[in-house]
Structure formats: structure tokens, C-alpha cells
């Protein structure tokens, strides 16, 4: 490689490294803002903001979903297996909302410690399988021979 070409190569590498470091610093500084949601245990530890709305993400606890008589308000609890917080939401739920499903709710905590949500999004997981496979997996799990 001729000296001029080597110089250009070094210049380009230096440029990428420099921009990379700057981006890494910026991203670390804004790390909290890049977190799309808090987990229930983070909320329990008081890490979530109190003065403005935030998002909580977790699994809908099995057997916790209660529909109010108005047909639109739902109450359920969100868990990450370490902490659990109660959620109340009025509105239309996404198709994937069900017990045991991961969801993300946006809203704020009231004085009673209930998270009042104005938006609920379903977070689907990275697993794709036909229904029959899911069924047989479930039966196997109930039989206790998985995990």
C-alpha cells in the first residue's frame, strides 16, 4: 500500500472510531431516555419518575384480569416475577392482550399505588410456532418434564 493510501485508510479508521466514541458517550448519557419502559421491580424500587407519565412493561399475572361492569375498564396486575403492580386501564386492548402475555402500559401511579394507564401495548415474544406445537409444549410443561 502506498503511503498516501495508508494515510487515507488511517484517516477513515480514525473518523469511524471518533464518531463511534462520541455516539457511545451520547448514548450512555441518554441511556435512561432510551429505555422504553420500566420493569415492575424498578417501579417498586422507586426508579420510575413520579412527576410525569412513564411506561411499565411486564407479564400480565395469570388469573388477575378483571373486567369492570362498563365493559371497557380492565384491572390486572403486571409482574416480572420479583415485583407486582396493579394496573387499571379504560379502552380497547390489542389483539395479543391475554394473561401471561408481555405488555407495556403507559400512565402514572396514583396515591393508592395503582398504575392508571392511558395506553396498553402488547409485546410479542421472539417465538414463532404453529398452534399444535404450542399445545403440545404446554401439555409437556404441565406434565413437568420440561425444565
Amino acid at each position: 500500500m502506498t503511503p498516501t493510501r495508508k494515510k487515507r485508510l488511517i484517516l477513515i479508521v480514525a473518523m469511524v472510531v471518533g464518531v463511534g466514541i462520541a455516539t457511545a458517550l451520547a448514548v450512555t448519557a441518554f441511556n435512561d431516555n432510551l429505555m422504553f419502559y420500566f420493569s415492575p421491580s424498578e417501579v417498586a424500587e422507586g426508579k420510575a419518575p413520579v412527576d410525569h407519565p412513564f411506561r411499565v412493561g411486564g407479564l400480565v399475572t395469570n388469573g388477575s384480569v378483571k373486567r369492570q361492569s362498563d365493559g371497557l375498564t380492565v384491572e390486572f396486575t403486571l409482574t416480572d416475577t420479583r415485583a407486582t403492580i396493579p394496573v387499571r386501564y379504560t379502552g380497547i386492548l390489542p389483539d395479543l392482550f391475554r394473561e401471561g402475555q408481555g405488555i407495556i402500559a403507559r400512565g402514572r401511579l396514583n396515591e393508592a399505588g395503582v398504575f392508571v394507564a392511558d395506553e396498553v401495548l402488547a409485546k410479542h415474544d421472539e417465538n414463532y410456532m404453529p398452534p399444535e406445537v404450542a399445545d403440545s409444549l404446554k401439555t409437556a410443561q404441565q406434565g413437568g418434564d420440561v425444565r
Binding site: L96, F97, H124
Partner: peptide, 8 residues
């Protein structure tokens, strides 16, 4: 249809 939003 899945998440419940077009964009986040």
C-alpha cells in the same frame, strides 16, 4: 394489530 400501535 399486534402491539396496538403503528409507531413507537
Amino acid at each position: 394489530p399486534m402491539w396496538g400501535t403503528w409507531w413507537v
